[in-house]
Design a protein around this nucleic acid. Structure first.
Length: 106
DNA sequence: CACCTGACAAATT
DNA sequence: TAATTTGCCAGGT
Protein backbone atom coordinates (compact mmCIF):
# COMPACT_ATOMS: atom_id res chain seq x y z
CA UNK A 1 0.00 0.00 0.00
CA UNK A 2 1.25 3.41 -0.82
CA UNK A 3 2.75 5.14 2.21
CA UNK A 4 0.18 7.64 3.38
CA UNK A 5 2.99 9.49 5.05
CA UNK A 6 6.43 8.60 6.28
CA UNK A 7 5.55 9.76 9.72
CA UNK A 8 2.56 7.43 10.08
CA UNK A 9 4.49 4.51 8.73
CA UNK A 10 7.45 5.18 10.98
CA UNK A 11 5.24 5.43 14.03
CA UNK A 12 3.59 2.11 13.22
CA UNK A 13 6.96 0.45 12.74
CA UNK A 14 8.32 1.75 16.02
CA UNK A 15 5.22 0.81 17.97
CA UNK A 16 5.33 -2.64 16.44
CA UNK A 17 8.88 -2.96 17.80
CA UNK A 18 7.85 -2.44 21.39
CA UNK A 19 8.82 -5.63 23.26
CA UNK A 20 6.37 -7.68 25.26
CA UNK A 21 5.81 -6.30 28.73
CA UNK A 22 7.17 -2.87 27.86
CA UNK A 23 5.61 0.52 27.24
CA UNK A 24 6.75 3.77 25.68
CA UNK A 25 5.56 7.34 25.46
CA UNK A 26 4.49 9.52 22.56
CA UNK A 27 7.35 11.90 23.20
CA UNK A 28 9.99 9.18 22.95
CA UNK A 29 8.55 7.91 19.70
CA UNK A 30 8.32 11.40 18.27
CA UNK A 31 11.84 12.14 19.40
CA UNK A 32 13.09 8.96 17.77
CA UNK A 33 11.41 10.05 14.56
CA UNK A 34 13.28 13.32 14.68
CA UNK A 35 10.55 15.62 15.93
CA UNK A 36 10.17 15.55 19.68
CA UNK A 37 7.21 17.90 19.49
CA UNK A 38 5.39 15.69 17.06
CA UNK A 39 3.97 13.64 19.91
CA UNK A 40 0.58 14.83 18.75
CA UNK A 41 1.09 13.32 15.35
CA UNK A 42 2.15 10.05 16.97
CA UNK A 43 -1.19 9.81 18.75
CA UNK A 44 -2.81 10.62 15.45
CA UNK A 45 -1.06 7.75 13.77
CA UNK A 46 -2.34 5.35 16.40
CA UNK A 47 -5.87 6.65 15.92
CA UNK A 48 -5.50 5.99 12.22
CA UNK A 49 -4.19 2.55 13.11
CA UNK A 50 -7.24 1.70 15.21
CA UNK A 51 -8.05 -1.85 14.23
CA UNK A 52 -4.56 -2.66 12.98
CA UNK A 53 -2.22 -5.18 14.60
CA UNK A 54 -0.54 -2.41 16.51
CA UNK A 55 -0.04 -2.81 20.26
CA UNK A 56 -1.26 0.73 20.78
CA UNK A 57 -2.01 -0.21 24.38
CA UNK A 58 1.75 -0.14 24.95
CA UNK A 59 1.84 3.54 24.08
CA UNK A 60 1.00 5.93 26.87
CA UNK A 61 1.34 9.62 27.48
CA UNK A 62 4.23 11.08 29.45
CA UNK A 63 2.32 10.55 32.75
CA UNK A 64 2.04 6.85 32.00
CA UNK A 65 -1.70 7.22 31.74
CA UNK A 66 -3.58 5.35 29.04
CA UNK A 67 -5.14 7.38 26.27
CA UNK A 68 -7.53 6.71 23.48
CA UNK A 69 -9.35 4.05 25.45
CA UNK A 70 -12.59 4.94 23.76
CA UNK A 71 -10.96 4.40 20.38
CA UNK A 72 -9.83 1.01 21.60
CA UNK A 73 -13.40 -0.17 22.01
CA UNK A 74 -13.84 0.25 25.74
CA UNK A 75 -12.73 2.31 28.71
CA UNK A 76 -10.58 -0.25 30.51
CA UNK A 77 -9.66 -2.69 27.76
CA UNK A 78 -6.13 -1.36 27.45
CA UNK A 79 -5.41 -1.70 31.14
CA UNK A 80 -6.55 -5.31 31.24
CA UNK A 81 -4.49 -6.07 28.19
CA UNK A 82 -1.39 -4.50 29.72
CA UNK A 83 -1.91 -6.43 32.93
CA UNK A 84 -2.07 -9.59 30.82
CA UNK A 85 1.42 -8.77 29.58
CA UNK A 86 2.83 -8.39 33.05
CA UNK A 87 2.70 -4.61 33.15
CA UNK A 88 2.46 -3.15 36.61
CA UNK A 89 0.11 -0.30 37.40
CA UNK A 90 0.84 2.44 39.90
CA UNK A 91 -2.77 3.47 39.69
CA UNK A 92 -5.93 2.50 37.87
CA UNK A 93 -5.35 3.47 34.26
CA UNK A 94 -1.77 4.53 34.94
CA UNK A 95 1.10 2.27 33.91
CA UNK A 96 4.31 2.04 35.89
CA UNK A 97 6.35 3.35 32.99
CA UNK A 98 9.32 3.87 35.32
CA UNK A 99 9.78 0.11 35.38
CA UNK A 100 8.43 -0.81 31.99
CA UNK A 101 9.54 2.23 30.01
CA UNK A 102 11.15 1.21 26.71
CA UNK A 103 12.85 3.60 24.33
CA UNK A 104 12.75 3.13 20.54
CA UNK A 105 16.05 1.88 19.22
CA UNK A 106 17.00 0.49 22.61
C1' DC B 1 -9.41 27.21 -0.42
C1' DA B 2 -8.86 28.24 4.70
C1' DC B 3 -9.60 27.09 9.42
C1' DC B 4 -10.23 23.81 13.18
C1' DT B 5 -9.57 19.55 15.58
C1' DG B 6 -6.89 15.77 17.52
C1' DA B 7 -4.78 9.24 21.57
C1' DC B 8 0.87 15.09 23.36
C1' DA B 9 5.05 17.47 24.88
C1' DA B 10 8.31 21.10 25.62
C1' DA B 11 9.58 25.89 25.84
C1' DT B 12 8.58 30.48 27.16
C1' DT B 13 6.40 34.32 29.61
C1' DT C 1 6.50 28.16 40.45
C1' DA C 2 2.32 28.20 37.60
C1' DA C 3 -0.16 29.20 33.61
C1' DT C 4 -0.13 29.97 28.77
C1' DT C 5 1.46 29.43 24.00
C1' DT C 6 3.67 27.21 20.23
C1' DG C 7 5.21 23.23 17.53
C1' DC C 8 4.21 18.94 14.99
C1' DC C 9 1.55 16.16 10.91
C1' DA C 10 -2.51 14.82 8.83
C1' DG C 11 -7.49 14.89 8.10
C1' DG C 12 -12.12 16.72 8.32
C1' DT C 13 -15.46 20.43 7.88
Amino acid sequence: MTPKSDFFDRVWLVVAEIPFGKVTTYGHIAEHLGSKSAARTVGWALKAAAGANLPCHRVVNRFGALSGQKSFGGPFIMEERLRSEGIDFVEEGVVDMQKHLWIPGS
